[in-house]
Design a protein around this nucleic acid. Structure first.
Lengths: 225, 225
DNA sequence: CGCGTAATTGACTCTACTCAAACTCAGTGG
DNA sequence: CCACTGAGTTTGAGTAGAGTCAATTACGCG
């Protein structure tokens, strides 16, 4: 019982489920199943059937397209509170991406029938799902723009400037291989570009910590180049 | 009056609005506004506010990201029956892409309030919108895969093999500049690759008509390379 | 402390782009 | 009816940006 209450309060704080009334929230909580995935573990692989959606309760997930040659292209990251896997669920198709835990992660899994039921009962829930999908669509279009219309240096600078800043410090949220893949670069190229920006004095890099010394210069190079 | 009936029967045949009941369809038809756009004309530009969605009644539209240097990256095409512009509408953000008519086109425009009303009245309409967005998301992920994990030759072959076949003939739906942009290539590279496939005897090209002589060889090169 | 992954650095390669010119062709107007 | 125009397409030559491959170093974690 305490167990169920736990899930319910968890759900109540997630953007997707906020505003559900008591009864519906209880239904959802009952429908939700806990899924624990250890760091580097797969939530699903390409080709798996999709019968529901996942919500990150604790931890982090990366979605990526695997390729024959072992490399992969990182599509997106999800952290606590975010839902993923809905799009494929609505289409009744197998996953075309794989979901892997970036750290030990607790997920909630909800069956598609329960989601459909919620949509049917509460139009505002439908709206929230629509907004969520729209946001992802938007992000993907931006990624396409980045890869097609910006060179490697601009992508790195753009990424740095987009990260949350704490004073002049920003942090790479994951290891650099993953960041490189997200940016559509090889790790070598990312390393070289960071070094280049360092040697110009615009930034300095210490592991995952980056100190932005001259944001104006970065922006100038971003737009100029 | 004949005018209104016209729109209503038009809407009734669109995937998005099929299954709406009489009353709702009538409401939609009343809400819908005709928009005519001549070939090469813009439906909207990047930065324009989005207050509703468009449905293509007749004609064709391309969505593209404009860039400073005058070039553009084509994101997607829409032909009769398809809706576009919903994602941005749900997010209350300005368009980040531009929509341009590929030929003389008749669109229907529906205000977001009317869409929201339909969602609130009919959960199956909400589902249909969710499915529509999901499909687009899926297509974008595939595009990202294409650009990141396939070389130029594979992209061209993949495109050819995906086109609807009439015997051994396929057609480029638009001029080659537009196709090239969709594939993330320059027109020069596309031209060269088509020439190369021709000289190997796999295809022959005559304007927008392409004859596939050896689909097996194409597939072999697609996977092998 | 030592192992394995992550990150860096160097040398080299190559794919696809750029720039430039020639050519095709449909549409237009004289 | 034909010359003219301009967009679309092709072809050529040269280049550069980012990738590959390989070796080395740094670092985190058990």
């Amino acid at each position: 019982m305490a167990h169920k209450l736990d899930i319910e309060s968890l759900l109540a704080h997630l953007p997707l489920f906020r505003n559900l009334d008591e009864a519906q929230l209880a239904l959802m909580a009952q429908a939700a199943q806990e899924v624990r995935v250890a760091k580097h573990g797969f939530v699903f692989q390409r080709g798996d059937p999709a019968h529901g959606l996942y919500v990150v309760a604790v931890g982090g997930i990366k979605l990526a397209i695997p390729s024959v040659s072992g490399q992969e292209k990182v599509i997106e990251f999800f952290s606590a509170g975010q839902a993923f896997g809905e799009a494929v669920m609505f289409l009744d198709r197998p996953y075309m991406v794989q979901a892997q835990a970036l750290e030990d992660t607790l997920l909630l899994w909800i069956d598609k029938h329960d989601i459909y039921a919620a949509i049917d009962r509460d139009p505002s829930f439908a709206r929230r799902m629509l907004a969520g999908l729209s946001l992802r669509l938007h992000a993907l279009v931006q990624d396409i723009e980045t890869v097609n219309l910006q060179n490697a240096s601009q992508r790195v600078i753009g990424f740095l400037l987009k990260q949350p800043r704490d004073g002049q410090q920003v942090q790479f949220p994951f290891n650099k291989n993953v960041i490189a893949s997200k940016l559509g670069l090889t790790p070598e190229t990312l390393s070289r570009l960071l070094h280049q920006l360092s040697s110009k004095g615009y930034i300095s890099v210490d592991g995952r910590d980056v100190y932005i010394h001259d944001a104006a210069a970065l922006e100038a190079q971003f737009y100029g180049q």
